[in-house]
Amino acid sequence: MSSTRNDFDPKAYNPKFQWGFLAPKYWGTWLGMLFSIPFSFLPIRCHRYIAKLATNKVMTKTRGQAQRARVNLKYCYPDMKPEQRESIVEKTLVTAATYLMRFPLLTLRSRRWLENNTEVFGLEHFEQAKQRGENVIFLVPHTWSVDVFAMLLASQGHPICTMVKSQKNPLSEWAMSKQRKQYGGRLYERSGGIKPFIKAIRDGYTGYFLPDQDHGPKQSLFVDFFATTKATLPVMGFISKSAKAKVLPIWASFDSDTGKFRVDVYPALEPFPTETPEQDALSMNLFIEQMCVERPHQYMWNLKLLQTQQDGTYIYNAKIETES
């Protein structure tokens, strides 16, 4: 594939470096980024050891990451024994911390390193769709190595586009966007709407879409999610139809023992879009539920997945039992 593709789009999201980033208020961010560079090259066993220590401390807190994960798991798996849920929380946080310590390597190491450390299963589903001349959107749940597959495909010359939500810290946002686009592609900010994203897919870009965050009651439909209900974006079917694209679900995993990545690509959702937005949203949630049967610790249970409740209550202050 050509390495000279023009990815410019005036509607794409492209944060620029600002001289204001050198101001004292950003020195802490710079220090953190500079420290993370040599730190990321430590052996995986060191990262995992530190991750376990940090997890043990976080697990004692009644607020924050562990608490949100406990609440989510309690609502999604109400019949699961408390110690089983605690095991998932612990493994989730160890996986997360180990991955984040190694995150800079995605930029600092080479394309070959990324390819050698990523195992992809089911890639033929994507390749066959492209050979048939079909547009493709990857349905990507929030797992810890969520960016890896998009970066791998981009490094191999595939035109990739995705939608992002900007961070509060503009320096961190600039650095993150530089990493995501180091091999090319386009980013579109969610506040700019989905039309530019759809147009890019119609123009031949492969979409990378993360649909499982809670965006509030006005933008969502309440559909089944494990044993509970979740405010779910119903736009996937609309995007698929408008872009005339097949929707291929993927599940990205990170092995905190080896530091390697695994991506499973599944056949296109069929039929999709379905007859209703509710059924479209349910199909997405069902895929996440199925993937969590074997590898629940890869999912970002620490997010406020269930923040929007139909009765308006806030569930993340609830006391959750940790022992039977």
Rank of each mutant, 00 (worst) to 15 (best):
Y205S: 08
E115C: 08
A66Q: 02
V265S: 07
R102V: 01
C161K: 09
M176K: 05
T107S: 14
N302C: 12
R85H: 08
P24S: 03
T308L: 01
G237Y: 08
S166D: 14
R132C: 04
T162E: 10
S36W: 08
P104T: 06
V235D: 14
D311I: 04
I315F: 03
E275M: 07
Y208S: 09
E119M: 13
A12D: 09
I250H: 03
N135D: 04
R202Y: 02
Y99R: 06
P211Y: 09
I44V: 15
A96H: 11
L221C: 04
H47M: 04
Y266D: 03
F103P: 01
A175I: 10
L152S: 06
K218S: 14
P296K: 09
P267G: 08
I320Y: 01
A129V: 03
A129T: 02
S242Y: 03
G20F: 03
L248F: 06
G237L: 01
F17E: 13
I44F: 04
F21L: 04
F254T: 03
V247Y: 06
D224R: 14
Y99F: 15
T313G: 11
Q309V: 11
R111S: 13
F149E: 01
N14P: 00
W113P: 06
F238D: 12
P249S: 00
L73F: 01
R68S: 14
D224W: 05
G216P: 05
L303G: 00
Y13D: 01
M176V: 14
L210F: 13
T95H: 07
K218M: 10
V247M: 11
D280H: 09
Y266E: 03
F149K: 05
K195R: 15
F222G: 05
L108F: 13
Q84T: 04
L152Y: 13
R45K: 15
Q18E: 15
K81I: 03
L139Q: 12
L306D: 03
T92N: 14
Q219F: 11
P43L: 04
E83M: 03
Q279A: 15
T107F: 13
G193E: 11
D203A: 13
E119C: 09
G204S: 02
L100P: 04
Q310T: 12
R109K: 15
K244A: 10
S177E: 10
L123D: 07
Q309R: 15
V164R: 05
L123C: 05
T60F: 03
P38C: 10
P170D: 04
W144A: 05
P271Y: 01
L187V: 10
M291K: 09
R132Y: 02
G20H: 07
V148E: 02
N285A: 06
R190I: 14
S172D: 13
Q213E: 14
F21D: 01
T322C: 14
A97R: 07
R68M: 11
K241Q: 09
L100F: 15
T4M: 10
V89E: 09
L269W: 11
L221P: 07
E127Q: 13
I250P: 00
G184A: 07
A66H: 11
H215N: 14
G207Q: 09
K319L: 11
T143N: 06
F149R: 00
Q310P: 00
F254I: 03
R180M: 07
F8T: 01
A66K: 08
C161H: 04
V140K: 00
K25V: 11
V140F: 02
R111G: 03
L171I: 12
T162S: 15
P196C: 05
F121V: 13
I239F: 04
P277R: 01
W251M: 06
L106Q: 11
M101C: 09
S253I: 02
